[in-house]
Amino acid sequence: MFTTYKRISFKLNGQEVIWEVDVRKSLLEVLREKGLTGVKKGCGVGECGACTVLIDETPTDSCLYLAVWAEGKTIRTIEGIAKNGELTAVQQAFVEEGAIQCGFCTPGLVLTTTALAESGKDYTPDELKRELSGHICRCTGYQKIFSAAERSLGQEHHCACGHHHEE
Rank of each mutant, 00 (worst) to 15 (best):
G38I: 02
A148H: 07
V17F: 04
E131N: 12
Q15H: 15
I78F: 06
C159L: 15
R76W: 12
K83M: 06
A89F: 04
C51N: 09
I8S: 03
V53Y: 09
C139I: 13
D61Q: 13
G103C: 04
H165A: 14
T114L: 07
T140M: 02
A82S: 12
I145L: 12
G162E: 14
R130K: 14
T37W: 04
G38A: 06
E150W: 10
Q91V: 01
Y123R: 07
E71W: 06
G46T: 05
V23T: 15
E79D: 10
S26Y: 05
L109D: 03
E16A: 12
T3K: 13
L27S: 00
E97Q: 15
E79H: 08
G72Y: 08
T4K: 11
V21H: 04
Y142T: 11
E127K: 05
S119R: 08
G134C: 07
L27K: 02
G80N: 05
T113P: 02
F146R: 03
E97P: 02
R7C: 10
V90D: 01
F2I: 11
L128N: 03
A117Q: 10
F10L: 15
F10Q: 14
S62L: 09
F10C: 15
A115Y: 04
E127Q: 15
M1D: 12
K73W: 06
E166D: 11
I100Y: 07
C159Q: 15
I55A: 07
A99I: 02
S26D: 09
C105M: 04
E167D: 14
T52C: 05
K144G: 08
V21M: 08
L12W: 03
R130G: 06
I18F: 14
H157L: 15
V17W: 07
G42V: 04
E97M: 13
R7N: 15
R138E: 06
P107E: 07
Q101Y: 09
G72T: 06
S133R: 11
R7W: 11
